[in-house]
């Protein structure tokens, strides 16, 4: 079963049968970065920090109702890449993005596009839980308020309750909604941040190592939550834990030094990688 299908990153169908893994020297994407009905598409994306090219010609699709995991050694550009998907890189001085990224067919780097609306559609959860210094209720209500999503107190109450329920936090906090969100435990804070992202009803949720600051119990809860959220949202998750990637994701993308090396179904990437670098990484030879 050493045979594999390679396509070029441009997406042209040029199947080649090979009998063994792609050599380490090949920097082109192997596997299938494209899906039939994508939510987001990225074509030939390059990111520069000043003169440094942090992402090199990456093309990748994010499908509907799927969890796609980004793995790779530190500094490989996976965080930089997902920060392109909601234009969070705009806030970094000297950062430049080229190429095309679309959400539902609309180019998000279009000059006419409102970045505020984009970020309401593409939510983000960060590595370290970052609840606002406000009450639990206000943390959730903040997004809907600034976007004018609700017009009455009752509707807002309901939205807060639903968001907390979806994030699996409602039962733990329903009696103390007006206490500071910063008083929760780390895992609860992270779920609060997920609830906060859900409250503005996004289509895609980006998660940048959401469990790296949490203990195994809290991690397990969040992983279950991610699996449930897949029914409503597309989720892009960056993780350093290969077990986590294999547990929660349907597809996996492996980055190395700014190149997208391999994309494929998670089960295939972890059991039968097409690229030698991928194999090295998942077997722990570097990373």
């Amino acid at each position: 079963m050493e045979q594999a299908l390679i396509r070029e990153s441009t997406g042209r169908q040029s199947p080649t049968l090979v009998s063994r893994r792609v050599s380490r020297d090949n920097r082109q994407t192997v596997g299938d970065p494209f899906v039939a009905d994508p939510r987001m598409t990225c074509r030939n994306v390059n990111v520069y920090y000043g003169d440094k090219r942090a992402i090199k010609n990456v093309s990748l699709d994010v499908g509907r109702n799927e969890v796609i995991a980004m793995i790779g050694p530190s500094g490989c550009g996976k965080s930089t890449f997902i920060r392109c998907l909601n234009r969070m890189n705009d806030t970094i001085e000297g950062c430049r993005v080229t190429g095309e990224i679309t959400l539902d067919g609309q180019n998000i780097y279009d000059s006419g596009l409102d970045v505020v609306a984009l970020r309401a559609q593409v939510g983000m959860v960060f590595q370290k839980p970052n609840p606002f210094p406000k009450s639990i209720y206000e943390n959730i209500a903040y997004g809907p308020r600034i976007h004018g999503l609700v017009d009455s107190k009752a509707a807002l109450d309901e939205l807060v309750e639903n968001s907390l329920k979806k994030a699996g936090l409602w039962d733990e906090v329903k009696d103390r909604l007006h206490e500071p969100g910063t008083g929760l435990s780390g895992g609860q804070q992270q779920r609060l941040c997920i609830a906060r992202a859900i409250a503005v009803s996004p289509e895609v949720i980006l998660m940048d190592e959401p469990c790296s600051a949490l203990d195994p119990m809290a991690t397990a809860i969040i992983e279950d939550l991610i699996d449930e959220l897949r029914q409503h949202y597309s989720i892009v998750i960056v993780t350093h834990s290969m077990q986590q990637a294999s547990r929660v994701s349907q597809r996996t993308a492996f980055f190395h030094l700014g190149d997208l090396i391999e994309v494929g179904a998670t089960s295939q990437v972890f059991t039968n990688p097409l690229h030698e670098l991928t194999e090295d990484y998942i077997t722990g030879r570097f990373g």
């Binding site: 505020v116 609306a117 984009l118 970020r119 960060f126 970052n130 997004g143 600034i146």
Partner: peptide
């Protein structure tokens, strides 16, 4: 991280 959190929700 607090600013990022707000930006990521679409705050101006």
């Amino acid at each position: 991280s607090l600013r990022d959190g707000a930006y990521a929700l679409g705050a101006t």
